[in-house]
Structure formats: C-alpha cells, structure tokens
Design a protein around this nucleic acid. Sequence first.
DNA 1: TATGAATGAGAGTTCATTCAT
DNA 2: AATGAATGAACTCTCATTCAT
Lengths: 217, 217, 217, 217
Amino acid sequence: MTSGEIRYAIAGKRKRARSDGEKEARRGAILNAARAMIGQTGFESLTMNAIAKEAGVSKGTLYLYARTKEELLLALFADAMEQVVQQIEAEATPETLARVLVDAPAQVPVFLPLLARLFTVIETNIAPEPLFEQKRRMREMGLRVAQVLAAQTGASLERTREASMVLMLSMQGAAQFDIAAARKPDDVPEDLAPMFAKETFRTSYAMAVRLVLDGLS
Amino acid sequence: MTSGEIRYAIAGKRKRARSDGEKEARRGAILNAARAMIGQTGFESLTMNAIAKEAGVSKGTLYLYARTKEELLLALFADAMEQVVQQIEAEATPETLARVLVDAPAQVPVFLPLLARLFTVIETNIAPEPLFEQKRRMREMGLRVAQVLAAQTGASLERTREASMVLMLSMQGAAQFDIAAARKPDDVPEDLAPMFAKETFRTSYAMAVRLVLDGLS
Amino acid sequence: MTSGEIRYAIAGKRKRARSDGEKEARRGAILNAARAMIGQTGFESLTMNAIAKEAGVSKGTLYLYARTKEELLLALFADAMEQVVQQIEAEATPETLARVLVDAPAQVPVFLPLLARLFTVIETNIAPEPLFEQKRRMREMGLRVAQVLAAQTGASLERTREASMVLMLSMQGAAQFDIAAARKPDDVPEDLAPMFAKETFRTSYAMAVRLVLDGLS
Amino acid sequence: MTSGEIRYAIAGKRKRARSDGEKEARRGAILNAARAMIGQTGFESLTMNAIAKEAGVSKGTLYLYARTKEELLLALFADAMEQVVQQIEAEATPETLARVLVDAPAQVPVFLPLLARLFTVIETNIAPEPLFEQKRRMREMGLRVAQVLAAQTGASLERTREASMVLMLSMQGAAQFDIAAARKPDDVPEDLAPMFAKETFRTSYAMAVRLVLDGLS
DNA sequence: TATGAATGAGAGTTCATTCAT
DNA sequence: AATGAATGAACTCTCATTCAT
C-alpha cells in the first residue's frame, strides 16, 4: 500500500477509525508534499521548514511522523521502491521484460533521486531499527526481481539472483549519472552535450539490462 | 542562502605563486591532508577547518588552491581516478584483466568514497569550467578502459565501449553499496550480516565484471 | 513565546471529578510517576510526555491536575517538604537533633533535587495563587523547625527562628552542591575527587547544622 | 583580570599584538553584552540570538569565544566570582569583615543570579575540562576566603576552612532566596510581603555571616 | 472526563566562505 | 601570498500546552 493513500481501518471502534484515517491521510499529505517538492525544486532545497509549509502542517507535526528528516525521506523511498517492484511484477512478460525493467524505475516519481542519495545521504541519519527494516526491504526487492527474471527467462533462481544483484548495482550507478546529467549548466560545450543528455538513466541502464538479460539466455 | 544554491564565486586572477615548486608542494600537502582525513575519520567529518589544520595552512589558503570545498574534493577524485586507470592500463593482461578491474578501484585511496559522492555531493558546487574538465576526464577514462578491454579480449572497440559504460555504472553502484556496508551499527541481526560485510565493493563489483567480460568473449 | 514568559493560563472551573476517591488516586499515580522518573532518569529528562506514559494517563489528563508542569513539580515538592518536617518533628530529641536535621532532607525522595530547582526553575511558571500558598507553606516549615529547635535545645523561639532561617539557607546551598557532585564526569582528576564525592549533601549540610546548634547552646 | 578589560599583549609581534588586543576587546564586548542583558531583562530571556544582537556581532562569532551558551555564562560567573573574592581580600579588616562578606557578593553585577543557577543550569552543558577548571577556581575561592577569615579573626586556618564552607552554602542558598523574592507578582498579600522584600540576599545572608563569625571568635 | 495529535516559536549550533590585515 | 576572525544563513529538532473529538 502506498503511503499517499488513505487507509480505512478495517477493524476498531468507529471513533478511532476516523482518527486513524485522518492520521494516515496526514501522513500521506506530508509525504506528498515532500514528493512534490523534490519534483519541483529539487532535492537540495528540501528542508523540513519547506515540507511543513507545503504540507500545511507545523514543523513539529513532521516529527510525529518521522524521527528525523532522513527517516521521512526513507519512507518516501520505501514507497517508491515498492511501486517499482510491483510494476515490474505486474507488467513483466518475456517480451516486455527488458523494457519494464527500465521503465519502472524511470517512471515512479522521486525513485531515482532518492535512490541516488540512499546510501550517502539518507542512511546517514537513520536509527538502527528502521535501518534494518530498510535493509530487509532492499533484500526482498532483490529477491522479487530475481523471481521475475527466473519466471520470464526460464533461468534458475540461482543465476537470476546474481543477475538481480548486478541490475541493482547498475541501477544505482545509472541513477547517479542521471542526477549528474540533470544538473545541466547554461552553456554546455558541444562535445559534452551527450553527458548532459535527457533520459540518461534510460539509455545507460538499458545497456546494463540488455547485457544482463543476454547473460541469462 | 538556500542549500541548493551554488556557492562558488567567480574569482579574479590570482597573483603568481611565490614559486611554482612551492605552490605545487603546498597543493600536494593540502590534498594529502584531505586524503588522510577521509581515510581516518571519514567523509562526514571533513571540514575545511579540519583540512587546514591537518595540512598546516590557514583556512584562507585553501581557497587559493580551490574555489570551493567541492573543487578541492574534485581534484582529489581526479587524481585518484587517474591512478585507477593507469593501474588498469599497466597491469591488465588477458589473464589478470578481471582481477585488475576490481583491484584498481578498491586499492586506490579515497577513490570509492569520492566516487560514491561525485554526482550527488561534489558536483553540486563546481563552477561550469572545472565541471566540463571533469566530464572530459570521465569520458576519457571510459575510453581508455574500453581500449584496454579491446586489447585484452580482442573484442571490437565498438563493443568494449558499451561494456566500459556498464562497468562504470556498476562501479558507481558498488561504491554506494560499499559505503552502506561500511556504516555498520553495533548490533546487526544475524540475517542482515551479509549486508554489512567487509569487501562489499569487491564482491559485488566482481559479479558485474565477470558478467561484462563474459559478454565480450 | 519567549522563554522568560510565564506560560500558565487562567483556567475555568473544572467539572467535578468522577469521584473524589478516583481523582485522588489518579493524582497520586501522576505524582508517583513523576517521582519515580526523577529518581531513575533524573530531572533533565522529565518531560510531560514521559510522565504521562509512566503514569498511564494521557498528556491532556496531566493538565487536569496541574495547570503547568511546574505546578506539578511544586505539588511534588510540597509533599516532600511536609514529609521532611514531619520526620524532624517526630524524631527529634536533644540527642538525635543534629542527625535528624541532616537525615530527613537527605532521605525523603526527590526533596533535594526539587529544592535545588525550586526558585530558579519551578517557581518560574507558577500562577500567583499557588505561589502564595507555597510561600506560606515555606514560612510555616521554617516556623515548625524553629519550634523543634526551641523545644529540643531550650533556646528562645526568637533565637531559633533565626537559626532555622540559616539552616534553610544552608540546606538550599547544600542541595545545590549535591547536584553538582552527582553530575560526575568519567575521568575526574584525583585532586578534584572530593568535589564529586557521594553524600555531598550530608557532609556539607552537617557542618552547617553543627555550627547552628553550637550557636544555640 | 576581568574579561571586560582589554589586555595589551606584553610580548609578541606588533601585528599580532593589535590582533590580540582586538580579540580580547571583542571577548569583553560579548561578556558585557550578556552581563547587561541579565541586568536588564533577566536571565530567562538571555538567548544567544539576543546576546549577539546586543554585542553587535554575529551569532557565529559567539561560538568563537565559547563552545556553548553555558560556557559563556560560566566565563561570566568566573569573572564575577574573582571580583567578589578580590573585593573581600582588599577590604576586609576585623571591623568591616562581616559587612564586606555580605556586600561583595551583593554588589558585583550578575554574581548572584549566576551563582543561583551555577549547578542546576550552567554546569549542565560544560565540557569536562572547563568544568574541572571551574571546580578548581571554586575551591581556590573557598581557600582564599578562609585565609581572609583566619587573618582577620585570628582563628586557625583549620577552623576557618569549615567556616568558609558554611558561608558558601549559605551564600548559595541566599542567592536562591533572592531570586525568589525578586520575582514579585503584582498583588502580594500583606502577610507575604516579607518574602518578596528587597535586599533579601543581604538580610538573609547577613544572618549566616554573623552566626559563622560568632562561631570563630 | 479523557485523549493525544497538533502546534509553533525559537533554541542552540555548524561551517563554507570572505576579506581586512 | 597568507592569515584566521568574522560572518550569517540555514539547519534540525524539542516540548509545554491546547483543543477538537
């Protein structure tokens, strides 16, 4: 379930249910605000102050939903990562596999910019316990992708797990190159234009995907 | 000043250094100091104050050699990157190729931590001109590695350029995972131990290298 | 709101408690929780949140029993002070007087840490009316101690009132020194060990008691 | 030497001397600003922001002269304490002793409000090393007062050290009562007027001084 | 009566960069 | 050329208190 959605409590007293719904809605509003800001003004200008203002809540409220700024970003990333995997699981066929593997991370909002900062910035300030949860989610994602690869290519899970690992490495790297290309100065010399190309993630990651899938067949 | 803003200033011409030899020596001292600090206390505690103290110069002097902190880090990275490529060029044989490709980035000091932050942190605050230089160096490195691959595997340069690109992506990603693994909390649950393993860069990047080289043969 | 400002609000009349017995029990639970926390984790970590959790009530409920945090602490102090005086009245004999005067404040839980913060911290945010009550209790305590002194030493009440005043001053001061000594860093230089000694209240206040009693005989 | 004064460097190069002088002047300006604010608007409204504004420096500059707010306050207290002792040493004669012991702490600006918060507030956030320095200064002050007492009363140093200790306790306590009395609400009931009297420090501490001196003769 | 989510003002602190000397 | 004191904007985070439910 994505955090932006309102989760209607299935059980519990009526009174509390409404409260839970509101609480989840508020959580969603906060994450949406952060998401929107990353999309509009970029990662660097994302301060707690700005998120609070955008979400229409007080700064203190932010800290009811996340112990630190980084925990908030991690929640955002976890949502995005889950979407990516679900999309891959849902849409992969032997024919579309390569395309889906590239499209999913490229399409889910904020996935790439957060992935690029996951280890160097976000995990800097996460308490051990949520860090461990995140590591487990990460591992699980790798496994689920491996299962998709196995199902669609017919390769053994043993081999697709390694392939999945290499895809993750490449995806991480491609996310980095994408950030670099997006920060395009005004006057780029002609010879450097390819390094500031749009769709940098897609083109570079597609190479890795092709290579990995070739290795599996 | 918002943190997303670029902080470097456009400086006027500097007076000639007292002597080119002295200047180069001082530049070396500064870079060595920064290198040492990253090695010892990590990237997070690397402040201009600390570098100046370690290098035995004043804070102001740092700004005679680099317009911003990031420019200083970029110089450090450029040095390291050059070493990595030279080592690959020098030591690659058909037999050692896979090993050398993994060893070189793993061995050159500060290469991995800087690579991991190159696009998300360092290039944040670099003036256009040095940024362009850096992009050219980066592209050149890719080409030189492709040439080594071509020479040692017999594959066409056309194919090895793509292979070189995928290696770069993976190396970037593996550098990230290495950072993550290095930030090991006190009590890691048993099931997560592999995610905080030593040599994470080597083991994960080795997979990518193998896969890429397999694709070339 | 500036920190120097007084935060208590003027509240309207409260509805009658569900039952006086229940109300008193809850009040006791709250005070006990606060007492326990001061004893265990110290004064600095004593937040309304923590008290509520420890007492098993909500934060809002706390404000049904005290208009401000400080009023709650004052209630705690008033209880402790009453205990101290009662113990002195009950146990004082000509022979035990000196010992009892020292033991009582040292033994009653939370009396010393609250006494030490009474004027500088607690009375900062007390409404006039309860502040006046507190001043009267304080004055009454002075008088009762003076009466004990008169009864046990045979000195005139006129003289023992002054003695009682000096004892209060010293007790306040000794409570302060006790706090200071309790905040003992890890590596205390040998020459400073006495300033971080245990039982600092007892040893220092005992001197004052002796001197005062000598003056009465 | 009081920190407000400019200390002209005796040795060192000319250029640096001026710098040292300026630095000391700045330090003095900062402490003076803090002193003035405590005098005017009280301890509670003393924020680093306000001190910086009053001193005409930036907030960052404050942290060049003190590692924490509390360290700044401690410097202020240390200055005041030294003045108190010097005044006692300078003015004590057998006839004036009692008066001087009371006047000195009452007259030196900010001494009492800082003394009252020394252990419960200020020492809360002081690094071990400056804390130890402070403890040594405190002990030295006790000894110097004891020496004055010995010199002026003829009592043995052994006895005056204990007397000095009791004086310190009482002075601490009297400083507390003084704070309490100064925080006078608008409508004090007649019967409580004495508890909000002016000169509370003087009157209460004078009792202790008299009693202690009586004990020495 | 009781709850606890929300508030929000401001606190202390950091650090890359500047510039008078 | 070299210094390092000064800057100041921005940062994250706390917590007593309120009030809609």
